[in-house]
Amino acid sequence: MSQPNRSEGAKSREAEWAAWMRAGLAGDMAAYRRLLQALTPALRGLVRRGLTQSGNADVEDVVQEVLLAVHLKRNTWMSEQPFSPWLNAIARHKLIDVLRRKGRRGEVPIYDLIDILPDTTERPETSHGEVSRLVSRLEGKQKDVVNSVSVDGTSIRDTAAKLNMSEGAVRVTLHRGLKKLAALYRVPEA
């Protein structure tokens, strides 16, 4: 797809993101991690614009929710398609969802994410805790595994040893835990 108005920066980002996602889908999790890290500042920019109206908006919470959706829905990106329109659609869908869920009125920006300059002015890297709260609502092993791999930064192998599980079981539990997290966003706390 030719996009003559795009800046050089946007074009090279598109190519780089698409290449990383392709590698990630093929099993290169290091490339995949680089992709998610590279998306984060751009998502932050988009989310911040979408939440400007509301005072207690927690940009980082929403960024994390979008990243989770990118992860769980990555099978819907067709590798022969450009990457950024897909990413844009996922991010806008989640942003609209968040605004609706919180009963906030807000405008979802129409900018293409890829044209937004990455938001590096502030680095609010810790969310106010929505993901942490949701993780705490996971059950048993799922909670242990997700916490171990994320907050504690433990590898799958070490997590398996620590929790006395097989590596395969840790992988399955992690995957189910992440899917459960996405579902919990829609279930209000009891």
Binding site: G27, R33, Q64, L174, H175
Partner: peptide, 22 residues
């Protein structure tokens, strides 16, 4: 939770993604 930590969890989930919608 820090976003970087959360990304660690996402990129540790190396199970093959599901089939394409088609």
């Amino acid at each position: 939770m820090k976003t970087d930590e959360f990304i660690e969890a996402l990129s540790a989930d190396d199970r093959k993604p599901g089939p394409s919608p088609g």
